[in-house]
Structures are given as structure tokens and as C-alpha cells.
Amino acid sequence: MPLFEAKDLHLRFGDRVVLENISLAFEAGQLSGIMGPNGAGKTTCFNVLTGRYKPNRGQVLWQGDDITGKSPQDIARLGIARSFQLMNLFDEFTVFENIAIALPGTRRRGHDMIARAYADTALVDEAYSILEKVGLAGRADDEAKSLSYGARRALEIGVALACRPKLLFLDEPTAGLGSDGRARLADLILQLKGELTIVIIEHDMEFLFSLADEISVIHWGQVIACGAPAALKANPWVEASNLGRLN
């Protein structure tokens, strides 16, 4: 049974169809990709999977249980974390504090959680181990707003990891990154791969082809192709395109 599954999702905004019969399956421990041109419906699809929109028809299943229409909070509590294409961080707080706030141990403490997080060595250790993982241990005391774009991306992934997810959704993680930033991000994702199940939405085919076990291509709000990167790349038109020539 796939860890996470979407079956025949159909979504309308007013009189327009935005998702048509989308079916996806994410196997535990795998890195799955969702790819498609601008306006194809990738982020909208993510928003249905993570509970922001309720589909008009179809089902979302987590470990076989129907979670369609559950709130984003309830879905997050199941162990599903997501990053956003537009980053959401607490800019005035330090890098450490951004991570500490997201840790389940801190969230249980109620008021003045940051002061207490600093006092709890177990939480401090956990926050630092996440910062090590995303390569930001040296920046722990800097304010989030002082970070470069690439470092903010890494921090956002750190915040998602702090929720101790079983499944991590990343929405266009390479958006706004240069080639160096992309390479560092790819390294980070490769390191996380295998530790948890990851789903990445990405516009950049090359990036996704190098990381994913399985890719679904979305266009016109529908899954137009699906398969392992090698199989998708073997398509003669894909080979003939610039991308194919690069490989």
C-alpha cells in the first residue's frame, strides 16, 4: 500500500476545471516528483493533498485511511509537512528560534515557548541536529531575515523537518536559486532521501530527473505522463529537446 495516495481528484474554481481526474501514489521511502509547465495545476494539486482545498470529487488516502477534506492542521498532525513556494519564516527571530518553535516538544509548552526551549537541553540538541543537517549550525544566532535566499530555503526545510514528518512536501524548492544554490539543495535532499518519504513539485526537469525515483507530469490539470526518470527521458521528443541534449 502506498504511504500516500490521491484517487481521481476533481476540483473546480467557479466554472473552471483546475484538476481533472488526478491520481497519484507515493511509496514509503521514495522520492516522488511532480513536474509541469507554469499554470499546469501543480501547486493547486499540492494544496488539495495538504488539505488547503477540498476536492469536488476524489479521495486522499494516508496509509489507506481516507483523509479527504481534513484541515491542514489535522493533516500536519498525521506527520505530513510542507514547504511553500513563497517562504514562510519568522524573520525577526533567529535561525535557532525558527527551528525551536516548530519542534513538537516546544509547541507543548504554551506561553513563552522560546525562553523555555533555550532552557531545555534536549530541545536545544534536537534543534542543533536539524541545523547541522540543513547546513545552518553556524548561523544559529543570526536573524532569519539576514539569510541569503538559498539559506532561507534550507531553513524552511529545517522547519519542516522539525515537525518530525513521515512525509515531506516541497513546493518548487529551486525557485529563485542560482546553480550553486541548486547544487547545495540537491545535496541536502539526497541526504534526506531514504530517511523519509519526499514529494517535490518542480518546474526544473533536470533537477527532478537527477533526484526522483518516480515522476508525474501534470498539464491541463491532469496527469499526462508518469514513470521513472529514465523511462520519461527515453521519450524521443524529450531527448530531442534541449534537456535531452544536455544529458
Binding site: 481533472e20 509541469g36 509547465p37 526537469m205 507530469v217 498539464h219 491532469q222 499526462i224 505522463a225 520519461l232 521519450n235 524521443p236 521528443w237 524529450v238 530531442a240 529537446s241 534541449n242 534537456l243 535531452g244
Partner: peptide, 24 residues
Amino acid sequence: PLVHLFDEPQFNTQDGYIGFMLDF
């Protein structure tokens, strides 16, 4: 839908989606 009408679909040589569109 029984009839699908694609009006000027964007066949762009740069992005490699053509093959997936044709298969679809």
C-alpha cells in the same frame, strides 16, 4: 470529457514537454 479541444497548445522545444503532451 468526451471531446478534448486543444487550442494552440504550447509546443516549446526548450522545455521537453512536447513528448509527454503527444503521449497524452
